[in-house]
């Protein structure tokens, strides 16, 4: 359903993504792993369309020249020049790095803002669903987003993205800076979301261990290029990947 072909992104002359291709079928979880500066976030910007907004802002402010090459196909349609808000309307929703929740709004209001694209029945139903997969949020529903812990904020960010009724959910480093217990809890929730809602998910992560077991297929990025790819079993059995990501 979703495919990126030969994506190249330059910041001025620096190559941030070098000919990256990936695809995601329906009802799948795809993992993208790599160290800092490997290009994970740039990839997520390119898939969600935020890169177009960043590109335009830089251009208007006289900043960096950003060049994007390659195609992004979604149900056979090339959406590489589609704005992020229109991609969201089509069902591609990004849950951004560092969560970016609305800190001056309550938990419930964050979810309601997330439901901008949903009708009132979907909004009701999805809020209830978010509260069943993340019961912690229900207790905190009147608290301001800024006063949540990192783990709670991440749950809220994922919940907020679900409110937009995605068909493809892009999770950019959802486990960043969280404790191992929360990491495993979130990884489990991500799998549940796929199993229960039939949403395809692309998740990027630096720390592969909690995410690797839940993915169907994964890509390893290094210096902006995809160097290894395979099913989770193939990746876990690959000696290089093992050494780099599992330390054994």
């Amino acid at each position: 359903m979703f495919e990126a072909k030969g994506l190249m992104v330059f910041y001025e002359n620096m190559l941030a993504l070098n000919n990256v291709s990936l695809s995601c079928g329906e009802n799948r979880i795809i993992g993208v792993f790599g160290a800092n500066s490997a290009g994970k976030s740039t990839l997520m910007y390119a898939l969600s369309g935020l890169i177009l907004d960043i590109q335009k802002k830089e251009e208007m402010a006289g900043g960096e020249r950003i060049t994007v090459r390659g195609d992004v196909l979604y149900f056979g349609q090339n959406i590489k020049s589609m704005k992020p808000s229109h991609r969201a309307r089509q069902g591609i929703v990004l849950c951004p790095e560092r969560r970016r929740i609305f800190v001056e709004s309550t938990v419930l209001e964050n979810l309601k803002i997330g439901g901008y694209l949903a009708n009132s029945r979907q909004t009701q139903e999805t809020i209830e669903y978010v509260f069943t997969i993340f019961p912690a949020l229900k207790r905190l529903s009147k608290r301001l987003g800024g006063f949540l812990s990192g783990g709670e904020q991440q749950m809220l960010a994922i919940g907020r993205a679900l409110m937009a009724q995605p068909k493809l959910l892009l999770l950019d480093e959802p486990l960043l800076g969280l404790s191992p217990v929360i990491q495993y809890l979130l990884a489990k929730a991500i799998k549940e979301i796929r199993d229960q809602r039939g949403i395809s998910i692309i998740v990027s992560e630096q720390y592969a261990r909690p995410v690797m077991p839940i993915i169907d297929y994964g890509y390893i990025l290094e210096n902006g290029a995809s160097v290894v790819e395979g099913t989770n079993k193939e990746l876990m059995d690959n000696p290089d990947v093992k050494a780099a990501y599992f330390g054994s």
């Binding site: 969600s48 970016r100 609305f102 937009a164």
Partner: peptide
């Protein structure tokens, strides 16, 4: 509150 986060939600 956050332009880019809002964009990713279809706003």
């Amino acid at each position: 509150q956050d332009e880019q986060a809002a964009m990713t939600l279809g706003i």
